[in-house]
Amino acid sequence: MGLSTQDKMLIEQRVTNDAKSVGAAYLLWFFLWFFSAHRFYLGRPGSAILQIFSYFILVGFVWVLIDAFLIPSMVQQQKDDVRKRLTLEALTFSGA
């Protein structure tokens, strides 16, 4: 059994409420780039720590510049993850 339209609307509302902000991610990227704060904010602590360590071999500086283009897709992936989690919870709850 699938989800009703109301369930889907509630999930999308939760995704919108729980989603990270692209603007906030860019502000963190711009002002706190050396701490990889944008990656921590977007729920990627492993790659954030790796990026911090890579500054010592100069690769991290290029990586930070590339992140400027990757931030929107990272936010979208975070939204998709929240959507999947909420849909799974709704399906398991409605099936119980």
Rank of each mutant, 00 (worst) to 15 (best):
T16F: 04
D18K: 11
I57H: 06
Q6S: 09
F61P: 04
L86R: 10
L91D: 00
Q6W: 06
P45G: 05
L10N: 12
M9N: 11
V15P: 00
S36M: 09
Q78L: 03
F30R: 03
F40M: 03
H38W: 09
I57A: 03
L32K: 14
K79D: 01
H38A: 09
D18P: 00
M74I: 07
S94V: 11
K20Q: 07
D67R: 08
D81K: 14
L42F: 05
S54W: 10
I49T: 11
R14N: 07
Q78E: 14
Y55T: 04
A25H: 05
D80M: 05
L27I: 08
S94N: 14
D7W: 06
A96H: 10
F30V: 04
S21Q: 01
V64Q: 11
L91H: 04
D81A: 14
W33M: 03
L42P: 02
K20T: 02
D80R: 11
I52K: 03
Q13D: 10
F56W: 14
V64P: 00
W63E: 02
K84H: 13
A96M: 08
T5S: 11
F34L: 15
F61H: 13
G46E: 02
T87C: 10
L28R: 05
R14V: 03
A68N: 00
W33R: 02
D18R: 13
G43Y: 08
L86F: 10
I66T: 00
V15S: 00
G23E: 05
Q78H: 14
L32W: 12
D67M: 09
N17S: 13
D81V: 08
A48Q: 06
A37V: 07
R85H: 12
F31G: 00
S94K: 15
T16D: 07
A25L: 06
L65F: 14
P72I: 10
A96E: 06
I52A: 02
D80L: 08
R83S: 08
V22N: 01
F31I: 11
L65S: 02
Q77L: 06
S94Q: 13
A25W: 06
N17K: 13
I57C: 14
Q6Y: 05
S36C: 11
L10H: 09
A48R: 04
S47H: 07
I52E: 02
G95Q: 10
Q13G: 01
A48C: 03
I52Y: 01
L91F: 09
